Amino acid sequence: MKGYKQWAAVMMSLLLGVAVSACGNQGTAESAYPSKQVEYIVPYSAGGGVDLVARAAADYLSKEWGQPIVVVNKAGGGGAVGAEYALKQAKNDGYTALAVNVSNTTMLAAGMKTPPITNEDQVYTARIGKGTLAFAVKADAPWKDFAEFSAWVRANPEQLTWTSVGPAGFSAFGVAEWLDVIGADFAKTRMIVTKGASDSVPKVAGGHAVLAVHTVGEIMPMLQAGKVKILAVSGDTRSPFLPDVPTAEEQGIQGLSVFWWTGVSFAKGTPESVIRKWEEAIAKMEKDPAFLQKLSEIQVEPAYAASEAFTKETQTETTYYLELATKKGIRK
């Protein structure tokens, strides 16, 4: 009996040792992430707002973690192609991140009855930045301010032409909300399909469309060149990049809430430790002066939101955009 007890004690000690070792190895594996290159998928072409923010973040995180965070552009389908790759085709092991943004998430879900990507396909990890919506017309357009322009559109909706990448694009939701607020007939206006801001703003500057609705950063080059003028920005405060341009609210047009944002998400099933590590690193990044300077240079405002808050906000936003899309006939 004594021999059996000694044998049992030895076996128990060995089993506990294995268990402790396993836990230790697991902790080491988690703390070692990332142990190799991470692909940061940008579902749009290089040079746009989402791409520039992602590159600034990748540069910071590469230095922070000592591993390359490589931006890979996979454009197409209004952001859906790259999103599908990151969320449905790549492994959910934390080595494929998605540069997620409003157009290929909440607006996509609201604008399409069967969207290729939904909120349920991803873990919203952290929001990084936001962009204020700006309403731009040709530099020599006759309207002196946004209130006068809105009154003209309300009286002549059939004369309003506006640019967008498609009926469920960012600009479409911005225009639809504004027309709803001022009581203009959305159905009588005409959308001109473009490839994005780099295509649509020149169309307005050249007189081929009346209005372009994009972020301040996207319109800034043509504004600085004197080709267009911005009549208003949305939100309840002026843009820090255009302090002399009044908000729509200041001009008596209240309730414009559409705004641009971008952040990071991962496929469902990605290890919780990976989500937490990105979340914490981005929170730290948003306090880094060099990173904040990079955001300022591309006219993007820091807008950090941790995973839980980010997820709740996207759910609320999706509900709102779904109602707007249904009401205005955008949903297809």
Rank of each mutant, 00 (worst) to 15 (best):
V137Y: 02
A248K: 10
G183R: 12
V300K: 09
I128K: 04
A139K: 15
E301C: 06
A54W: 04
G169A: 13
I298P: 13
F291W: 14
K144V: 14
T215H: 03
P243W: 05
A225Q: 12
A75I: 01
A90T: 14
T319E: 13
G174F: 02
V70N: 09
T247G: 07
G169N: 01
A283F: 03
D244S: 07
V38M: 15
A9K: 10
A99I: 06
A134W: 00
P221K: 00
A139S: 15
C23H: 14
S103W: 03
K188N: 04
G3Q: 13
Y304D: 06
D244F: 02
P116Q: 03
A187R: 04
T316K: 09
V81F: 05
Y40G: 02
P43Y: 07
I230V: 15
S198R: 13
Y320G: 09
V210I: 08
Q254E: 11
A136E: 11
P115D: 10
V165M: 11
T106W: 05
G329C: 14
G217V: 03
K138G: 12
L256P: 11
W7F: 14
Q122D: 02
Q89K: 14
T270I: 05
L292F: 06
Y304F: 15
A46V: 00
V70D: 10
V20D: 00
M1G: 14
R190M: 04
K63Q: 13
W65R: 10
V42T: 05
T262R: 04
Q37L: 11
A155N: 12
T311P: 00
V165A: 11
L108Y: 03
T118R: 03
P116M: 02
H208G: 05
G235L: 08
Y95T: 06
V201Y: 04
A305M: 15
M222C: 00
P243R: 06
P271F: 05
G183L: 00
S171W: 02
R331I: 02
Q251L: 01
L133N: 00
T28C: 11
Q293C: 06
A283N: 14
G17P: 12
G252M: 05
